[in-house]
């Protein structure tokens, strides 16, 4: 950040035209300045975003101190014997758990899709299947939410949750992992929806990465008599390893901040989730649910402080993703 002004392009590869007329030079300077200030608007947006979240969240953060991150008591309606309190541990843990499970589910699928499209699928078909997978990314998040709430959740409650509950001893280990109200709105179904939503992003980047592998590497491996599986496992996947981690982080960033789909299906309870099939909440779903109905200034401030936490988590994730992927890749 040492260069604050636009440097006059030393060593730029493109040719400038210093011999233009003075009128043109004036117009050029204005145009250059316009473009430059537009780019600065982007910078100001990010700075403003951070400042706004810090200022807005400060009252709650200073009021509760470190307990804001460790307590899971979320009580917006204060009464004398049960004072108003906000502890974000529940939503923070919910955010991390759902995003993590979603990535566990999406990662093998994404690798499978990318490998299938690059290695095994007939070329003509591969183009169309690739587009179909990318269309999954175009479906708005709220549509995923409705589908999750009205189709996936009832199906899941009837065909997965209920049989598991009936056949498992509630005191056994698995019984405790799978306990919960059998309505299909829980941490796990939220993770399932998230997995479907981030799948196209990861799969598309993986596919581009696999296509960027120099052909002679594959050809050499095939020439030695490797099976396609061995080529993929021993040559191709190791080759893209670093960028692939970046792609995963990119998907993780999306999963962490996803709002509407999760809000529909996670069950929205602020307590610590006790099992895989327990209802929970994420930072984004809490903000979406409560912001417009917030009872007081402290409640609003607590929600903005939650937003700040979400920003920090996603910023670190996305920054890591960009560094691993390099800024040239999508």
């Amino acid at each position: 950040m040492d260069a604050v002004l636009p440097s006059p392009m030393p060593g730029a590869p493109r040719i400038d035209n210093p011999g233009g007329t003075s009128a043109m030079k004036g117009g050029d300077t204005v145009f250059h300045a316009l473009c430059f200030s537009a780019a600065m608007v982007l910078m100001a947006t990010l700075v403003g975003l951070i400042v706004a979240l810090v200022i807005g969240g400060w009252p709650a953060l200073s009021h509760f101190g470190f307990a804001f991150f460790t307590s899971s008591v979320w009580n917006p309606s204060g009464s004398p014997d049960n004072p108003e309190a906000y502890g974000a541990a529940g939503p923070i843990v919910g955010t991390l758990i759902t995003a993590f499970i979603a990535m566990l589910l999406a990662l093998p699928l994404a690798i499978g899709i990318a490998v299938f499209l690059v290695e095994f699928c007939p070329k003509r078909l591969s183009h169309w299947v690739g587009i179909a997978v990318e269309l999954l990314a175009g479906i708005p998040s709220i549509v995923y939410g409705m589908w999750g709430l009205f189709v996936l959740a009832p199906w899941f409650a009837e065909h997965v949750q209920t049989p598991l509950m009936l056949n498992l001893d509630p005191d056994s280990f698995w019984g405790r992992v799978f306990t919960g109200v059998p309505n299909g709105a829980n941490i796990f179904t939220a993770s399932l929806i998230l997995a479907i939503m981030v799948l196209p992003y990861i799969a598309t980047v993986f596919r581009e990465l696999l296509l960027s592998i120099p052909p002679y590497l594959r050809e050499a491996a095939y020439g030695m008599g490797c099976t396609p599986f061995e080529v993929v496992r021993n040559i191709m996947l190791p080759y893209i390893r670093k960028s692939a981690v970046g792609a995963v982080m990119l998907g993780l960033g999306r999963a962490l901040g996803e709002t509407m789909a999760v809000t529909f299906i996670i069950g929205n309870s602020h307590a610590f989730p006790k099992s895989l099939f327990d209802s929970g909440s994420t930072i984004a779903s809490t903000i979406a649910n409560e912001f417009t109905e917030a009872t007081g200034d402290l409640h609003i401030s607590a929600l903005i402080a939650l937003g700040l936490v979400l920003f920090l988590i996603t910023f670190v994730t996305l920054a890591a993703a960009r560094l691993l992927l390099g800024t040239e890749k999508a």
């Binding site: 984004a284 937003g307 920003f311 996603t314 910023f315 996305l318």
Partner: peptide
Amino acid sequence: INDVLLSAPSIL
């Protein structure tokens, strides 16, 4: 920064 804003959660 643009890349970060591109994937930043829309609720923020």
